[in-house]
């Protein structure tokens, strides 16, 4: 693999007596699309929370190396906003938009850590602040257009249909200029047509921004077609990883996960 931008070593997470993650290893390469799959309660969301600073892992290392310098930075234990500033941005399984702000403002929030204007700038509205604000508005609008929400720019997030809210979350995460975009079940609640569009969007994002994407997803059809590699988590343990073809033929995975899916 080319130089990894994210390298997770032996990460474990305990909740009281429950071990939600058990010595998990995972690597994401530059411009790679990686899927993380597993049955309900396997610990996928917990994994995201551990690498984005919402939870502190009980043990192990989360290392990032966006520039490919070869001397990675350890990020576990850092606050979520610091992790985002370092370049890992995420969406949430249960959508967490800012409901009484407009779609555009939601995306503008994402640019917060890349802009600098202060209290004085806000009150005086000096040249630098005005220019920064204009750039933020324009960038946020472009992102909304990229995810196909250009008609809903000034609509309150709470008034936007469910499937489009997920796209808005993606735009908001992209506004933080990440090197790695983390999507937690982006296709949940979408119909097959919307899922197909989402697939296109994920590929387009990688092309346009040259970034890596990691997604948690239950829709196997989408996972198989969009990802370069797949990791399988079961009861907190990483039981397999490989290309979509390898995963589809892995007997352990079929037993743990795909077997259940093939019932219907």
């Amino acid at each position: 693999m080319n130089n990894p931008v994210l390298n997770v070593n032996n990460v474990s997470k305990d909740f009281g007596g429950i071990r939600a993650l058990d010595e998990v290893d995972l690597v994401v390469g530059d411009k790679e699309i990686v899927a993380l799959i597993g049955p309900n309660g396997a610990g996928k969301t917990t994994f995201f929370n551990c690498i984005t600073g919402i939870y502190v892992p009980t043990s192990g290392d989360v290392l990032i190396d966006p520039e490919g310098t070869g001397s990675p930075l350890r990020v576990n234990g850092k606050k979520p906003n610091v992790v985002t500033e370092l370049g890992m941005a995420r969406t949430f399984q249960n959508i967490r938009l800012f409901p009484s702000m407009t779609a555009l403002e939601n995306v503008m929030i994402g640019t917060h850590c890349r802009t600098r204007s202060s209290v004085w700038g806000a009150v005086s509205r000096n040249r630098a602040t005005r220019r920064e604000e204009q750039a933020v508005i324009q960038k946020s609008y472009e992102l909304l257009r990229l995810v196909g929400l250009e008609d809903l720019v000034n609509e309150l997030a709470s008034n936007i249909p469910y499937g489009k809210q997920r796209r808005l979350e993606i735009a908001r995460a992209l506004a933080t200029d990440p090197f790695l975009l983390l999507l937690d079940e982006p296709a949940a609640g979408m119909n097959p047509h919307e899922t197909k569009e989402l697939e296109g969007l994920i590929l387009e994002i990688r092309e346009t921004f040259g970034i890596s994407v990691m997604l948690i997803e239950h829709d196997m059809k989408m996972v198989m077609s969009v990802s370069d590699r797949i990791y399988v988590l079961d009861y907190g343990r990483m039981i397999a990883d490989g290309t979509p073809r390898e995963i589809a033929e892995n007997p352990e995975v079929i037993k743990a996960y795909l077997g259940e899916e093939h019932d219907d």
Binding site: T52, I54, E85, R96, L97, F98, H112, T176
Partner: peptide, 10 residues
């Protein structure tokens, strides 16, 4: 609106 999302957005 949402403290966790707010932090996660940097």
């Amino acid at each position: 609106e949402d403290e966790i999302a707010c932090q996660a957005m940097g």
